[in-house]
Computed example of a mutant assay.
Amino acid sequence: MRYELEQIAEQLQRVRIAQNLSQRELSQLAGVPQAHISKIENKQVDLRLSSLAALANTLGLEVMLIPRQAIPAVQSIARQMTSASSLSEPKPAYSLDEDDD
């Protein structure tokens, strides 16, 4: 499995665990065999797009292609969504100047 796919597999596993779902439960909800989920999480198989879409949808995630130039803004938004501090202190998704920390 390539590095980028490893990151995706790890994220799917983190979200599954955070939602207190077993591989078997996720399998039943997503329609992806539990053995395949195990192989994905253990990086033993390449992740097929159909499996990724089914797993992501079931976990409340969205598979999306974005322009590379937009990656920093998307990552910043994602960090804010998962950060507990973003609830009390909203921060802009991006800034025009690097010096504005």
Score class of each variant (00 low, 15 high):
60 G>P: 11
58 T>F: 01
63 V>F: 02
76 S>K: 00
38 S>I: 09
16 R>F: 02
25 E>Q: 15
78 A>N: 14
68 R>L: 09
101 D>V: 13
8 I>H: 14
7 Q>W: 05
35 A>R: 13
5 L>S: 04
19 Q>M: 01
61 L>A: 05
71 I>V: 15
17 I>K: 15
26 L>F: 04
47 L>Q: 01
70 A>P: 04
55 L>H: 09
66 I>F: 07
16 R>E: 00
80 Q>F: 09
4 E>N: 10
4 E>R: 01
33 P>K: 09
61 L>M: 06
89 E>Y: 13
96 L>S: 06
1 M>Y: 06
56 A>P: 02
27 S>Y: 06
61 L>D: 09
12 L>D: 04
23 Q>W: 03
86 S>F: 01
99 D>R: 11
2 R>D: 12
66 I>H: 10
19 Q>K: 03
75 Q>I: 07
89 E>H: 12
69 Q>N: 06
97 D>Q: 09
96 L>V: 02
98 E>P: 10
66 I>Y: 06
9 A>V: 08
39 K>Q: 03
58 T>R: 02
44 Q>I: 01
84 A>C: 08
47 L>T: 00
34 Q>Y: 02
59 L>E: 04
31 G>Q: 07
20 N>Y: 08
28 Q>F: 03
4 E>L: 03
2 R>K: 14
54 A>D: 13
48 R>K: 11
57 N>G: 14
91 K>T: 15
99 D>C: 09
40 I>Y: 01
91 K>Y: 08
4 E>T: 07
44 Q>N: 09
81 M>W: 10
86 S>V: 08
73 A>D: 12
64 M>H: 07
93 A>H: 07
34 Q>R: 15
74 V>R: 08
48 R>G: 04
11 Q>G: 11
74 V>G: 05
40 I>P: 11
26 L>Y: 05
63 V>Q: 05
43 K>M: 12
10 E>M: 04
30 A>V: 03
7 Q>D: 07
37 I>L: 12
30 A>M: 01
52 L>F: 04
17 I>T: 10
52 L>W: 03
14 R>I: 05
82 T>H: 15
25 E>S: 12
92 P>V: 00
86 S>C: 09
68 R>G: 08
92 P>I: 02
82 T>G: 12
53 A>H: 12
15 V>E: 01
22 S>R: 08
11 Q>F: 12
74 V>M: 02
4 E>Y: 06
17 I>M: 11
19 Q>D: 00
17 I>H: 06
6 E>N: 15
48 R>E: 12
17 I>V: 13
70 A>S: 14
86 S>N: 15
30 A>E: 00
86 S>Q: 14
50 S>D: 07
83 S>G: 04
56 A>C: 02
22 S>L: 05
18 A>G: 14
25 E>C: 02
99 D>L: 02
8 I>M: 10
83 S>M: 00
41 E>R: 05
50 S>N: 05
55 L>F: 01
15 V>D: 00
10 E>P: 01
3 Y>S: 14
22 S>A: 07
16 R>A: 00
88 S>Y: 14
93 A>T: 08
7 Q>S: 07
91 K>W: 06
21 L>V: 05
9 A>S: 11
87 L>G: 08
91 K>S: 12
54 A>Y: 06
67 P>A: 07
53 A>G: 11
45 V>L: 05
